[in-house]
């Protein structure tokens, strides 16, 4: 079996006096989309931020593409091919859509073919190319945040709650976009509260509770097991339709 693209082993993270991650172990395969689920406060966002290096792990090891990156800085991790879309999207409101994407393209202006592909995924980016990002709607901002993360090919994409606050029609667009992303060379680790979205695009799943991984396996297996969903998440996917 091929080595996982990302592997966390016994990762602990403290934020001030709070012990948030308490020995997180899980892996993200080299292909497909891994969902990270769990109740509010379970440690999902902290896990993504720890992988990105925005919060330092106080113990444990993070391995990425065969190398340990636990003590690497955030810019170093980004340059290894990890991209991050935070929960608040992190767009630069005072910059235009074009400038947001130009900034993310570290190796020079984005290739035309890449831009055309992004415009097919998110047509609003082309329409509002010269608009200030702060003027976009919530859904368009989320599209910009994801477009910015993939403006150049990346190996691992971390996305925190991509459907948060979005209208159902935009969520449907997001599902299509993530299915398209899965067809690329990028692996995805996505934190999500929307179980319909999670089931629609997830290949594998890890469920967190109280700063630990309490379940890991195939998304299809979890989606088919109402009692397991009830036990792990406090409600069933069926009830969430």
């Amino acid at each position: 079996m091929a080595e996982a693209l990302l592997a966390l082993a016994g990762v602990n993270t403290h934020i001030g006096q709070y012990h948030i991650l308490q020995g997180v172990d899980f892996e993200v395969p080299r292909a497909g989309l891994t969902m990270l689920l769990g109740r509010n406060g379970a440690g999902k966002t902290t896990t993504l931020r720890t992988v990105m290096g925005l919060w330092q792990a106080s113990a444990g090891a993070i391995r990425y593409d065969g190398a340990e990156i636990t003590r690497r800085t955030t810019p170093e991790r980004a340059r290894l091919g990890i991209a991050y879309v935070p929960e608040n999207m992190g767009i630069f409101a005072g910059l235009t859509v074009r400038e947001n994407l130009l900034l993310a393209a570290r190796s020079g202006p984005p290739e035309d073919r890449r831009l055309e592909w992004i415009f097919r995924l998110f047509p609003a980016m082309q329409k509002f190319w010269h608009a200030h990002a702060g003027n976009l709607s919530g859904g368009q901002k989320q599209m910009l945040a994801i477009a910015r993360a993939i403006v150049e090919p990346r190996r691992l994409l971390l996305v925190d709650e991509p459907t948060k606050g979005l209208a159902p029609s935009i969520i449907a667009n997001m599902i299509e976009a993530f299915r398209e992303l899965k067809r690329t060379e990028t692996s995805l680790l996505v934190v999500e509260q929307n179980f319909h979205f999670a089931r629609s695009v997830g290949d594998t799943v890890a469920v967190m509770d109280c700063g630990r991984i309490v379940h890991a396996g195939r998304m299809a297996d979890l989606a088919a097991d109402d009692s397991l969903q009830q036990k792990l998440l406090g409600l069933s996917l069926q009830a969430h339709q």
Binding site: T73, A78, G90, G94, L95, L103
Partner: peptide, 10 residues
């Protein structure tokens, strides 16, 4: 605007 995001971009 957002120095953390600039670092996340590398």
């Amino acid at each position: 605007e957002n120095r953390e995001m600039v670092e996340s971009l590398g």
